[in-house]
Nucleic acid binder design. Structure first.
Lengths: 203, 203
DNA sequence: TTTCTTTTTGACCAAACGGTCAACGTCACG
DNA sequence: CGTGACGTTGACCGTTTGGTCAAAAAGAAA
């Protein structure tokens, strides 16, 4: 497929620094709102130096999105048809919620891209993502038909997992403004969401 | 309080055109990503003409957010303590979902602002919004204690309504990419969400 | 040390940005 | 019809934007 990158230690290090800085800025400002100057400053490099590692703003963003896509699909990919249905779905919810806690910037980067109409990700959505979702929706539909869980639309079930878990990363400011400083949103969400999905799926 | 605006017909019309164009562009690109040139073009005005009606980009955005805030709180404000608990909550869900259908741009504008850390809305979140949410959370907690609905955290219940309904506006591209062209997302969501909240709240 | 490659940077560029202004139309109303 | 307020615009300004480039500095290999 693609040839091995063949990178020096310095390249490895500085590319990583750029991508981390870009994640910070893109997830905060969106693609158009982000500037190379800000990314460079955040990465601790001069702008020309940054452009030595990545040819353009587009390329940085594309690199970030590509890496994100894989990690994003992972928690759903882990859902096993052979496992206990309720456990499998609750496990998926737990993994997604954990990602909202551990990778909120990634979640917001993804949210930014989708809210803006996914101008540089359409293909991935209709491709890999749809393929995986349809497959897992099939698994869930099978469980419903076998009477192992309640009879609900599997696609909308998956959407509900996404929205309920990602909400705690994407809308973090709002959640914290309402709950106050003393409460840990995601900690509380864990119990709430487990109860929600348990009740939803019970026969 | 604030003096009556005293506006001509032309002012009324053109201010409305600017705000509509700005809603389109801001909701698509975020604050920094949006440009006055694009808003002006979308509104069918020259840039200086646009700046005759609004002093700055900030002012357009602020005007938009202020108008949005009221409409955004409305569906929750309508929740009545004296009504039937399940009906009241299902009614709230229905109203919110209807807003995702009728005002997706407003939903995305709001989402953009929050995802970006609510830099020009912090006060409103911790103020009016928190006040209203806390009040209604109290009502719901009362229903729980009275044994009229299941015992769940009222704040997280409200978050779940927000995330599940707004998802269909904010992540519209993704939802459509997965469901395909022939399915009507919000139409299907109606039934799904009613089932979800009925099961969640049942004693 | 020498030589060659990789890395870094200050100076620079054209385009796009938010915003201004003086001048010029257009409108309502007496 | 005249006149004063309202509405519109082309030309312009200083700054920021994504991106370039030649030249210098730093590493690696001999």
């Amino acid at each position: 497929m693609n040839a091995p990158p063949r990178r020096t230690r310095i390249q490895e290090l500085n590319r990583a620094r750029v991508l981390d800085a870009a994640l910070e800025v893109f997830s905060r400002e969106g693609f158009r709102g982000a500037t190379l100057d800000e990314i460079a400053r955040e990465a601790g490099l001069s702008k020309p130096n940054l452009l030595y590692y990545f040819a353009s703003k587009e390329e940085i963003h594309a690199t970030l999105m590509e890496a994100l896509m894989t990690n994003w699909l992972d928690p759903l990919a882990e859902l096993r048809a052979c496992g206990n249905p309720l456990d499998e779905i609750l496990g998926y919810v737990r993994r997604k919620l954990q990602m909202s806690r551990d990778f909120p910037r990634e979640s917001r980067l993804f949210a930014q891209e989708i809210v803006q109409g996914a101008p540089r990700m359409q293909a991935a959505l209709a491709g890999d993502l749809k393929t995986l979702v349809d497959e897992k929706a099939g698994v869930i539909a099978g469980w419903s038909e076998a009477g192992l869980i309640a009879d609900i639309d599997p696609h909308h079930l998956i959407f509900s997992v996404w929205s309920l878990t990602q909400h705690y990363a994407d809308f973090d400011v709002q959640v914290r403004a309402i709950l106050g400083e003393k409460r840990d949103p995601i900690d509380e969400a864990q119990g709430f969401l487990e109860a929600l999905f348990t009740r939803l799926l019970a026969r």
